[in-house]
Design a protein around this nucleic acid. Structure first.
Length: 483
RNA sequence: GGCCCGUUGGUCAAGCGGCUAAGACACCGCCCUUUCACGGCGGAGACAUGAGUUCGAUUCUCGUACGGGUCACCA
């Protein structure tokens, strides 16, 4: 029984798209579920698009989410090198071998001729395809040109007639007419392979058993099948996955500003939540549970749960899942994550961050929304007195003034400045006045926060900002109500 | 345009010939509650369309519409 070997093969473009990350995730799951190997390969054959430092972005992101590879550029392995430009000689060798096998041929057409050809074809409404001008050059002609140093490419020799069928786990058999297939370039003038060729050579020589890739490759898949056949190699299992969309007609793209993993981290999303959410885009687990850690995902993963139609990325759902992860955090961990965000707005040193974090945790879905929730702790903002008007609490400016004037001395006399102490003091007043809790507490909370919504109620806010600040804020609010 | 693929509520989706067509997010209402949240309960909301096959189609076949992919010396 052969070991399952899967690979993630990104191009170093400088950032890792969320769709690519999802492909990596599925690829990883397939390997790990079967106890196999997950391999990282860098597809950098396009010299013009090379971006400095791009490989590191890939390593960093994959490691951050826990998709550790068993073989790859920086960790090595028995099938290296794992960077395509470092395998350059291999492709040429195989390309030449394919020529001998009759599956490819040398082509000396220059770009000008090709452009002209394409222009003519387009003008006459024909599908642009290479006209196979060099396909039947005699061995002597080829030899002469090669010796003369004429630049060349090697093209695939697609059968003129018949059909080709390839198999995809999700889509089943897909059959196409060979006549619709172009004699695509396999080896470029610069001696490097095109994706179409490198991919086949690498997957085979690296012993890849399952290929997960974006569905944009579905159309070229038959050509790969032909290549495998020409070499006499066994094809890997194909799984083409649909795209992640921004809306019904647009893919989630770099231009949307929120398509990369690092964008989401910067916005205060948790790594685990991102992974969990993207797993649910285009894949569904068997049961009704939808919160999974990476190891659980591996355990739960089943190719049968993959979807054949595109999925629209829903930021709201990501938020909700992120909220679940935040709530599941230990208080210590949440405090650690939240502190930098709290500190954006809260500078005073006498504040108990962990108390504040405890209030924030159940009402935070994304870390970046914390600053706006805590902007009143350092200093109470100016606020509109209409905040005191609340129908349900039966409060208004007049009742607020009455309540605050009664509460002030009670609090001034309070020594046990804790939530517990505050509770007994204010509830004593409530009982004495014979009113509902909210009648008193609503006004107090507004008076010391100046906000309609706060993390925690009057007791918690008073506890955190301390006695002195609470009293001075109340006095200020009383003055405002009197004016 | 040619070729390939897809189409279940607003979104993600379960479903694989017979179901009152799951569930989650979002939305609405109620409860809990000192606000907002959290939590609990409930509600509204879908098989693109036309034929066929079948005793019976969301499910199978074909057409139509709509959407996506692909047609590079990019991956």
């Amino acid at each position: 029984m052969n070991e399952v070997r899967t690979r993630f093969a990104p191009s170093p473009t400088g950032y890792l798209h969320i769709g690519g990350l999802r492909t990596a995730l599925f690829t990883y799951c397939i390997a790990k579920k079967a106890g196999g190997k997950f391999i990282l390969r860098i597809e950098d054959t396009d010299q013009e698009r090379y971006v400095e430092g791009a490989n590191e972005v890939i390593y960093r992101t994959l490691r951050a989410v826990g998709l550790n590879w068993d073989e790859g550029p920086d960790v090595g392995g028995d099938y290296g090198p794992y960077i395509q430009t470092e395998r350059r000689g291999l492709y040429k060798e195989y390309a030449e071998k394919l020529v001998e096998l009759g599956g490819a041929y040398y082509c000396f057409c220059d770009k000008e001729r090709l452009a002209e050809l394409k222009a003519v074809q387009e003008a006459s409404g024909v599908n642009p395809m290479y006209d196979r001008h060099c396909r039947d050059l005699s061995p002597e002609e080829v030899k002469a040109k090669l010796e003369a140093g004429v630049p060349y490419v090697i093209r695939q020799k697609v059968p003129l007639e018949g059909t080709t069928t390839f198999h995809d786990v999700l889509y089943g058999d897909i059959t196409v007419e060979n006549s619709t297939l172009d004699d695509q370039v396999l080896l470029k003038t610069d001696g490097l392979p095109t994706y179409n060729f490198a991919n086949v050579i690498d997957d085979h020589t690296m012993g890849i058993t399952h290929v997960v890739r974006g569905n944009e490759y579905l159309a070229s898949a038959p050509k790969y099948t032909l290549l495998y056949k020409a070499f006499g190699w066994e094809e890997p299992v194909y799984i083409h996955v649909e795209h992640i969309m921004r809306d019904k007609q647009h893919k989630l793209s770099k231009r949307d500003g929120d398509a990369s993993y690092e964008d989401f981290i910067a916005k205060g999303y948790l790594s685990e939540a991102i992974v969990n959410y993207i797993a649910l885009l285009g894949w569904s687990p068997k049961g009704e549970r939808e919160i999974f850690s990476l190891p659980e995902l591996v355990e739960e993963f089943d190719i049968a749960g993959l979807s054949k139609s595109p999925a629209i990325f829903d930021p709201l759902k990501l938020r909700a899942i992120n909220g679940e992860y935040i709530r599941a955090l230990t208080p210590e961990k949440f405090t650690e994550y939240a502190e930098p965000y709290i500190r954006e707005k809260v500078k005073r040193e006498d504040i108990d961050i962990s108390k504040m974090a405890a209030l924030l945790q159940p009402r935070t879905e994304v870390l970046s929304e914390i600053p706006d929730q805590v902007d009143f702790f350092d200093e109470m903002p100016d606020y509109d007195l209409s905040l005191y008007e609340n129908k349900k609490m039966k409060t208004n400016r007049d009742t607020a003034l009455e309540v605050l004037e009664k509460a002030l001395p009670v609090l001034e006399a309070l020594d046990d400045w804790t939530v517990k102490g505050l509770h007994s003091a204010l509830f004593g007043l409530i009982e004495q006045m014979g009113v509902k809790n909210g009648y008193v507490l609503w006004s107090v909370r507004v008076a010391i926060s100046g906000k309609q919504f706060t993390p925690g109620g009057a007791l918690e806010v008073a506890d955190i900002i301390g006695k002195a600040d609470t009293l001075s804020r109340m006095k200020r609010s009383i003055e405002m109500l009197k004016a």
